[in-house]
Amino acid sequence: MADEMVPMAGVVLDAADPKALGKFYRRLLGWEMVESDDNWVQLRGPDGSSKLSFQREPRHRAPLWPSEVEGQQMQVHLDFEVADLEAAQQKALDAGATLMDWQPQKEGVRVMADPAGHIFCLFLPGW
């Protein structure tokens, strides 16, 4: 197995409250919650090949957007392709996301933050 490349199965995000963050992404994505306790939550995509997990990190700090030299730096962000940007943005807001003030692309992309402050982007096909 050491010489084989295996497909990435998922992403894990730190959060002070993994259950709350898991519930947010379940509302946003509609994915099934397959594991949930006080320290670990895992969602599985509809075809079972993608997973998004959340682990307890009591000292989690949200990154600054846009980044600043002295502030918490973003290490990863999630991208979600959507068919209707305005509808997806409203769904994210209704689920508890925040629309970020700084939007580097004016059309086709929205930069948002989940309730724990992790940055994610909604984008139209072709962006």
Rank of each mutant, 00 (worst) to 15 (best):
Q90M: 05
D14I: 02
R110Q: 15
F80Q: 08
Q90C: 04
L93T: 10
M1W: 10
A20P: 09
L78I: 14
A9C: 07
F123Q: 11
L64P: 01
A15G: 10
L21T: 03
E57I: 02
G45Y: 12
R56K: 15
A9E: 08
V69Q: 10
V109E: 11
M1G: 15
E32T: 07
S53H: 13
L85A: 00
G30Y: 12
G30C: 15
A20T: 11
E70I: 09
M74W: 03
E4T: 01
A16S: 03
R59T: 09
S67W: 07
G117Y: 00
H118T: 04
L28E: 02
G30N: 14
P18Q: 05
A16Y: 00
D84T: 03
E4V: 00
A97H: 05
Q90H: 12
V69C: 04
L43W: 06
G71Y: 05
E32C: 04
P46R: 09
M1K: 12
P7F: 07
S36Y: 02
M74V: 03
Q89G: 12
V82E: 11
L78F: 10
E70H: 10
M8G: 03
K51I: 00
E70A: 13
E107D: 13
L29C: 10
V41R: 07
Q89S: 14
R27I: 04
P63Q: 06
M5V: 14
E32V: 01
M112C: 06
K51A: 01
A9K: 11
A15H: 05
M8Y: 06
W40S: 02
G48N: 11
S50Q: 15
G30Q: 14
W40F: 15
Q89E: 15
F54V: 05
E32A: 08
Q75W: 11
G22E: 01
E81L: 06
K51T: 01
V11T: 13
W31G: 15
P104E: 07
L13C: 03
Q42F: 07
V111K: 04
V34C: 00
G71D: 10
H118M: 04
V69E: 13
D38P: 07
P125W: 12
E57N: 08
V12F: 09
E107L: 11
R61K: 11
P104A: 09
A83K: 09
L29T: 12
